[in-house]
């Protein structure tokens, strides 16, 4: 009995000493520990991602030839439709180039695009986050926007050597400005991720919607980036307004929810748009160049 008590006491003491030691450790050492743990964990994350890729590969390889023929036929039809669309876009592109030449407008290459595979997804109620298989070694920096096609996926929050963590649009740590389709005055609204209810679909909040904003009839209103904040390029799709805007407690503004335009948890691959010039916000996050 006494021996058991002594053993229990010793384990409590050891826990207390460990906790106290952790608290008293210099923050640099703690950060180093955390980084070391992440780097230790990184190969496992890579392995998970690659295993999934392999499983997908074998799943597709096991399809019957009839299924593949049918899929190929569907794909050919889609390709044909896209070809026609592309030809239409070509005219627009030429006109765009011509106008740029006339106005001598040089579009600076603001971003460097880095394509990355998704390793894991954290779809807990609080933090909607994915881990991608590219990191500091690939030139990724914190704060960089993450997109898939013309859709905003989220934003890089932490960068490690070979992996990076991305806060999705629906994460509470995500914030950006947007324009609403149908607002001819282009007034900016605020997009904030919100913690989802358990088992609920994650959404983001759209706030500071002007009181006189009216939803376009018929289709859900598209929400796009403004390009004003220096982080996200303009015109990217953030999602669509959910159901309609309703008045908030603030009274003078309306508020609504944003439904992401893609299923963010089924993405296999994303692009990280790394700004060529460091933004002030990025410098602020690093804290080393702040005057």
């Amino acid at each position: 009995m006494d021996q058991n008590r002594q053993g229990a006491r010793a384990s409590y003491v050891a826990l207390a000493v460990f906790v106290a030691g952790w608290i008293l450790l210099p923050s640099a050492v703690r950060r180093l520990n955390r980084e070391a743990f992440v780097e230790f964990q990184a190969p496992a994350l890579h392995l998970v991602g690659k295993s999934r890729d392999l499983a997908t590969f074998w799943e597709k390889k096991s399809r019957s030839s009839e299924e593949l023929v049918a899929a190929g036929r569907d794909l050919a039809r889609i390709n044909a439709a896209l070809e026609i669309k592309l030809k239409g876009m070509e005219d627009v592109r030429r006109e765009n180039t011509r106008l740029r030449e006339v106005t001598r407008y040089n579009v600076p290459a603001d971003y460097l695009s880095v394509v990355a595979r998704v390793a894991t997804r954290d779809s807990s109620s609080w933090w909607q986050r994915i881990v991608i298989r590219k990191g500091r070694n690939d030139g990724i920096r914190p704060g960089a926007p993450v997109v898939f096609g013309d859709t905003v996926v989220g934003r890089v929050t932490a960068v490690h050597l070979t992996t990076s963590e991305v806060d999705l649009v629906t994460s509470p740590g995500f914030r950006c400005t947007a324009y609403l389709e149908g607002d001819d005055q282009n007034r900016i609204v605020l997009i904030n991720g919100v913690a989802a209810n358990s088992l609920g679909t994650a959404k983001a909040r759209v706030s500071v919607i002007p009181y006189d904003y009216l939803l376009p009839a018929g289709t859900p209103a598209r929400v796009t980036t403004t390009g004003m904040g220096g982080v996200f390029p303009s015109g990217l799709t953030l999602g669509y307004l959910d159901g309609g805007a309703y008045a908030t407690q603030v009274g003078n503004f309306k508020e609504s929810l944003l439904v992401p335009s893609r299923d963010l948890y089924n993405l296999q691959e994303v692009s990280v748009l790394v700004p060529i010039i460091q933004t002030p916000g990025e410098a602020l996050m690093q804290g080393d160049q702040f005057q």
């Binding site: 509470p172 950006c176 400005t177 900016i188 004003m228 904040g229 220096g230 996200f232 002030p280 602020l284």
Partner: peptide, 12 residues
Amino acid sequence: KAVARFIEQFPV
């Protein structure tokens, strides 16, 4: 732009 820069670049 000043508003947008604050929203997008300042820590949440």
